[in-house]
Design a protein around this nucleic acid. Sequence first.
DNA 1: TAGGCCATGTAACCGGTTACATGATTAG
DNA 2: CTAATCATGTAACCGGTTACATGGCCTA
Lengths: 195, 195
Amino acid sequence: MNVKTLILAILNFQEATGYEIKKLSTEGVYSYFVEISYGSIYPTLSKLEADDLVTVRAEVQDGKPDRKVYAITDAGRIEFAASLATPPALDKFKSEFLLVALTAELGTKASITKAIDDRIADLETKRSMIEETLNNVIENKADEDCASNWVCKYGLAIKKFDLKYLKEHRESLIASAGESNQSEKTSENPKKVPV
Amino acid sequence: MNVKTLILAILNFQEATGYEIKKLSTEGVYSYFVEISYGSIYPTLSKLEADDLVTVRAEVQDGKPDRKVYAITDAGRIEFAASLATPPALDKFKSEFLLVALTAELGTKASITKAIDDRIADLETKRSMIEETLNNVIENKADEDCASNWVCKYGLAIKKFDLKYLKEHRESLIASAGESNQSEKTSENPKKVPV
DNA sequence: TAGGCCATGTAACCGGTTACATGATTAG
DNA sequence: CTAATCATGTAACCGGTTACATGGCCTA
């Protein structure tokens, strides 16, 4: 998944400016796909326009800077559909938290507690974000069974379960952390890791 | 999380060659952190050695190529512990499957079915990999409550739930896919996406 | 009046990957 | 006889990010 495909995916559903694309890809459902920065969005949008996969429309606003609203073309839709045709790559899941957890014996109870509580807080934020999204859709009387709803519900279910599990097993991870005793942290007795 | 930290993390638990590090980071628990290739492992190992964070020992084998076994030094352990001190970054989760699911209306029932069944198969493979790991540990009578066990159990619980959810909701996603009717795939009626 | 939001864009940099080079041994 | 496994390493490339430049409006 690259920036080009993500932008095409977003524009397939709605018109947007570079600035909005950045927001969507950071906050909304789209955040499950890639994280992108302005440094890659704007140049990609230009290339897409040069290839006639999108069109631009300049909008003059007063009080706010001018905005360039991008829209997908038929050629863009075809290109996007083609990129969906190849079977999706496996999920990429990378977690620094899990590394901290794996080496909990090297940390203090305080640092492990913070790590796990930060994670719980983050999951809770994301859970309510999805719940809000789902509520908006129901208010708008949009199709309950649409694919985007399925994705939201799936994400929500996983997050809820994750949260439940973490809360139930929080203490047992903290228990394996060392005391704030620095001496035992280096050298001797490295724990075995299952592989 | 970069290659350097991952290598230090692995060497903190066991000695290893570049080749073994690659395997561990692709297959074992370590695969939750980063995916790395030889092109980054070998140069990093050299740098680590130059900085005295690891040591090397050449092992001549017959029948097999010589191997260079790396071990962490005390300086390396201190460096690794220091990198754990900074609170972990949030999880990175990127899923092409979810993009396919989100745009299920653009796909055929066949392509969506394949995507979801491939995902289920992959989750099942990973689940049994973790189960095997957990069994090995129990056989070896290792500490049941060690941190690495916690991580395995956490991963296993999430995978099992994910699998259960997918199997239960498989049909409803497939239902929202279009028929193999190409005509309705481009242009008109783009579905709304919750954001 | 400081900081956040709106809004677009570029240049330098970097952390990786891909592809290549090499080659013996063993399992199916 | 083929494919996989073991094993190390380099050079070219690339898909991004970071930091910077610019500037007006609105809110606390």
